[in-house]
């Protein structure tokens, strides 16, 4: 597979949120006015000015407390449903070299729901545009790591050629599985942002994997949508 990919090893993440700020810093995105909702996670959700968000969940697994971290962002799907659903070729396109899925000013007027993102990523701004992670494509074209990857202190965020990242993810999975039999890679063959999780995916986030929580959509259907844009119309009927 050509192009680039992220490998996000959540087992190494410490939820320092360096990636959240590095993303805002590089993109010069404004801060949101937030409140403490009784959680270390803030903001509450992704937004037009928050492309990256470390989601945090406290769960008890087999009687043991776990604090799970999930640095959420656009998955840059290999066959992005949002591109197909957008209708307008100029609104959402896939960069040839990197595989980055890019939103442009032509997203004006589209609603996030219209794009049927299985990971619930796109967000609308005040001026009617949609926004999300752009893979720091300007940096990548200039030989630099995406801001979130570069800033990650603990080695959770990785970036490189797709095959290499997938290979790294698989090798790391084998290591993690020895101590965490429930560990898995999330939709590894379908996305350019491959997550490794140690526990059941839904414990991290309701949209951690494609379609699992989409009303009226089975996982198989969701995956079909991801992999085969031509069956999309059928599946969504």
């Amino acid at each position: 597979m050509k192009g680039k990919a992220f490998f996000i090893d959540t087992t190494l993440c410490t939820a320092c949120k360096g990636c959240q700020v590095a993303c805002k810093q590089w993109h010069q995105l404004p801060a949101e006015k937030t409140v403490n909702r009784g959680s270390f996670q803030n903001p509450e959700d992704l937004s037009f000015s928050t492309y990256k968000l470390v989601r945090m969940e406290e769960v008890v697994v087999d009687g043991k407390l776990k604090w799970l971290y999930f640095p959420d962002q656009c998955r840059h799907c290999l066959e992005p449903p949002c591109r197909d659903m957008a209708g307008d070729k100029d609104a959402v396109y896939k960069d040839e070299k990197t595989g980055a899925v890019i939103y442009t000013a032509a997203t004006k007027g589209l609603a996030p729901e219209d794009l049927e993102c299985p990971y619930n990523i796109p967000r609308k701004g005040e001026k009617g545009l949609l926004a999300k992670c752009d893979m720091c494509i300007d940096r990548v074209y200039n030989g630099q790591l995406p801001a979130c990857v570069k800033t990650c202190p603990a080695g959770a965020m990785n970036f490189g050629d797709f095959d290499e990242m997938l290979d790294m993810a698989k090798k790391r999975l084998a290591v993690v599985k020895k101590t965490n039999p429930n560990a898995s890679l999330l939709d590894p063959e379908m996305v350019r942002v491959i997550y490794l999780v140690a526990e059941a995916p839904l414990l991290y986030h309701q949209f951690s994997v494609a379609g699992l929580r989409r009303p009226g959509m089975t996982r198989a259907a969701a995956l079909r949508k991801l992999t085969d844009p031509f069956t999309r119309a059928v599946a969504s009927v």
Partner: peptide, 11 residues
């Protein structure tokens, strides 16, 4: 603002 966004209030 970026840091206050992440941790806005005394808890």
């Amino acid at each position: 603002p970026w840091l206050l966004e992440l941790q806005p209030q005394m808890f």
